[in-house]
Design a protein around this nucleic acid. Structure first.
Lengths: 253, 253
DNA sequence: AGTTGTGAATGCCTTCACAGCG
DNA sequence: CGCTGTGAAGGCATTCACAACT
């Protein structure tokens, strides 16, 4: 959704700028269907709006126009209004949006008012980074367990948590009432742990392992792949490099 | 790109399964235009195919059909063939694809044959995790610098690298010839460091900071946002939860 | 007067079926 | 005969302009 090329008269590219981040998204839970559906692309942006609103809330700002909020989120205002319209009509025409109210409505729509209990599987640098991630503790996500297989790190304390042995995965998941999991383990063991998580009733998994995970349809899996991200950057960088060389060649002629 | 809902007769959802990961993608470098454009969605998947091919290469497998490769990548075969067709015709009809050859062609198309030198800014747990990430060292990405602001960690060794002070960012970037950067710093300082990177001539940035970064159009920024990912999972989980309750209510009636 | 909410149009991505080759 | 490559059709997402409301 962005390949502006010299051939193409893609003016819209200007507005997209730094705005990115969405995913084709995995399968929607089998029989889902309460309330309105939010298109996946909009869903991803709603989380950005929410963050911008939270910052405004902290600054004591009470009202925003779609124009201002869009600017803060790095999108254009019609897109923002369209996105918000999937939730309902929470603005006031001629005025704008009430920051605390809109913030609350988006949170509710995203399900952030529920009690999400996250288990992190894999306590390497990545797992520890996640356990200490401030964006988790806030906004409804509570890290309730942290696992590792290495006897040397089991028992260590990370923040308020003590690292549990993966051997006791099932028991600790049940005891802590975890309803989401993050996989930050080596690729080789990711599928096995994924299976165990699913077996334990976890239906929402965020994986950082660079492998394609197989899971039943009712399980939501999202993947963050850092190698993929760098490769995409490399592709674009290479293209502009090549085109620069081509431009120089044209000049030289 | 996937909102399968109970209302919708979306059978295709079954095939998408765990297949996710793409981004709307930022702006393409101003005057780009060498060779064919790869649609962003395809681009993201190509990196997955490449990984699958690498695994096959390691296993000594020499030929794959689109069906097999698609299965390994978690997509359906027509989609895979369409994606590959953006690069050219590298298969043999009636036979399949030559693994080493296709692998090389994809690598070349993605620009992975070039020498990418990555600077990691922020040596917290996340930065260290990235510095040690096996997926980087391989496949054309070399981590050449690691920065931090904390005097306590400056000078520490992480793998083969010594942590440099951010104060010397510009100098070290120049000395190491870095041409890509990863931002793994707190949100508050991300924009400032982004500016400094851009000022130093870096045009490809991968950011983990949960903020919208502003940068000139010619700079490619991709963002990985872990909070967003969890929130998207929460949304889906909430929906299936709600629909389950609704189902139970219908049963009770 | 000012700003939101949305229908209609456009364009991109995906899907499918089959034509094209080996 | 088998499998790849692709044109055509359908479905989302985005854009735009303006109607609706305060």
């Amino acid at each position: 959704m962005m390949a502006p090329e010299e051939v193409r008269s893609d003016r819209a590219a200007l507005e997209r700028e730094t705005a990115n981040s969405d995913q084709p998204a995995p399968t929607t839970p089998a029989g889902a269907g309460a309330g309105r559906h939010i298109p996946p692309a909009s869903l991803a942006r709603l989380t950005i709006y929410l963050r911008a609103l939270s910052a405004m809330l902290a600054d004591g700002i009470e009202r925003v126009s779609s124009e201002e909020l869009a600017e803060a989120a790095g999108v254009n205002s019609p897109k923002l209004r369209k996105d918000l319209s999937y939730l309902g009509s929470y603005g006031t025409r001629g005025v704008g949006y009430d920051v605390p109210y809109l913030s609350g409505q988006i949170s509710a729509a995203l399900g952030l008012t529920l009690n999400w209990r996250v288990a992190i599987v894999g306590a390497g640098n990545l797992g520890r980074a996640l356990a200490g991630y401030p964006g988790f503790g806030s906004r409804g996500f509570e890290v309730v367990a942290l696992f590792d297989a290495d006897p040397m790190v089991i028992g260590q304390e990370v923040g308020w948590l003590r690292i549990s042995p993966v051997d006791s995965l099932e028991a600790v998941l049940a005891k802590t009432g975890a309803n989401m999991a993050v996989l930050s383990v080596p690729a080789e063991v990711a599928q096995d742990l994924c299976d165990r998580l699913v077996e334990s009733g976890i239906t929402s998994i965020l994986s950082f392992a660079p492998v394609v995970l197989q899971a039943p349809e009712h399980v939501q899996i999202r993947k963050v792949d850092m190698a993929t991200e760098l490769q995409i950057l490399a592709y674009h960088a290479q293209r502009s490099q090549v085109s620069q060389i081509a431009a120089r060649a044209r000049l030289a002629r």
